[in-house]
Amino acid sequence: MPSTTPKPNQGWIYTDRVNPKAAGQTVLDFYSQRYLHSDRQAWQERIEQGQIEVDGKAVDPTYPLQAGQTLTYWRSPWVEPEVPLQLPILYRDEDLWAIDKPSGLPVLPGGDFVYHTVLEQLKIQYPQESLFPLHRLGTGTSGLLLLGRSPLGRRELSRQFREHICRKIYRTIIGSCTLPEQFECHQAIGKIPYPQLGYIYAASSHGKPAQSYGRILARSPEKTWLEVEIRTGRPHQIRIHLASLGYPLLGDRLYGPGGVPINCRTARPSDGGYTLHSYQLGFLHLHTQQAIKLTAPLPPELITPEVKTIALETEKH
């Protein structure tokens, strides 16, 4: 029988440019203070083994950096975590595509995920195309993701996102709640200190404005199905906003009541366990200026009891 042991990837080169604030730091200080996922000893060993170069040359850990220099860190091949890699296409034209991103698949490289990301899988699965994600979805979030295919598509859709022309509607589940049938949240979101990562986004009085508008779809004694439209695109906005209202997403291991982390020792933003789905995206066609509304199929857990009942009655007729 063929081996089912996962194969290592091809390794990866991470690049940094030394800014004026970092000038004068040693190479070791730069990495150990900037990238807290590894301790100082681990970074020293990598530098001494030649995995880190400055302007293409291996250096000593105590080498002082100068503004404008380029740092490269060669990470040797490793086995990436197994995640769904399917990218169903929901819409395409000459300027953009829309795909249905699976939950668990990161959009951009980071941490242990490089090739197992939307960005790299697009290059692997569609090598003849030039596709780039126009917005971010969290690793645990599924559903609609727009991709720029042409320079016009990237430029104009990015503008529509920036100017809040695009409508973004999500579906999710929280526990039993006393929220009204329609509600809104304007809690500001910003960076707060966080162990190992340096910082994390959370509810913060010093953050940037954020706007979310929710609607109850169905209730049960244990669950509440919601539809949420976000007018701003702050990181983890829906998770933070619902938690700030006292109702974190079911299964969210990071954000608790108040919209702040509840488990600072082990939880990370990329942790899954919750259900959040990019359900609808509305935007203006780049050439005709007509309104386009795309919808992604709902995962089974987001089909509300009412929708299930209607589907059964339709089948009988």
Rank of each mutant, 00 (worst) to 15 (best):
S3E: 09
T4R: 14
T5W: 07
P6C: 05
K7M: 14
P8F: 00
P8M: 02
Q10T: 12
G11K: 14
R17A: 09
A22M: 06
T26N: 09
T26F: 03
L28Y: 05
D29L: 02
Y31N: 10
Y31E: 06
Y31D: 07
Y35S: 10
L36Y: 02
D39I: 00
R40W: 13
R46N: 03
Q49P: 05
E53T: 15
V54S: 01
D55L: 04
D55C: 06
P61A: 06
L65F: 12
Q66V: 14
G68N: 06
Q69I: 08
T72D: 01
W74H: 15
W74C: 11
R75T: 12
R75V: 13
S76C: 03
W78Q: 14
P81M: 11
E82R: 14
Q86C: 10
Q86S: 15
L87E: 09
Y91H: 13
D93L: 02
D95H: 14
A98S: 11
K101W: 11
P102Q: 02
L105Q: 04
L105P: 05
P106L: 00
P106H: 03
L108S: 06
G110T: 02
G111T: 15
T117R: 03
V118Y: 14
L119W: 00
Q121Y: 12
Q125D: 10
P127N: 03
Q128A: 07
E129Q: 15
P133T: 00
L137G: 02
G138D: 15
T139F: 05
G140V: 02
S142M: 08
G143V: 12
L144M: 11
L147K: 08
G148I: 11
R149T: 13
S150A: 08
P151R: 03
R155E: 11
F161W: 07
H164F: 13
C166D: 01
C166K: 04
C166G: 03
R171N: 06
I173V: 15
S176Q: 11
S176I: 07
C177K: 07
T178D: 11
T178P: 02
F183M: 10
C185V: 08
H186I: 08
H186F: 15
A188K: 08
I189R: 03
I189E: 05
G190D: 00
I200T: 05
A203I: 08
S204A: 04
S205G: 08
G207V: 07
P209R: 05
S212Q: 14
Y213F: 13
G214W: 04
I216M: 14
L217S: 01
S220A: 01
S220E: 01
P221S: 07
K223H: 14
E229M: 14
T232D: 09
R234D: 08
P235A: 04
Q237K: 03
Q237R: 06
I240C: 09
H241N: 04
H241S: 05
A243T: 00
L254S: 14
Y255F: 12
G256R: 12
G258K: 09
T266P: 10
G272W: 13
G273A: 02
Y274W: 04
Y274Q: 03
T275A: 05
L276T: 12
H277R: 00
G282D: 13
L284Y: 15
L286H: 11
L286F: 08
T288H: 15
T288F: 15
Q290D: 13
A291L: 15
I292E: 05
T295L: 07
L298H: 10
V307C: 12
A311V: 04
E315L: 11
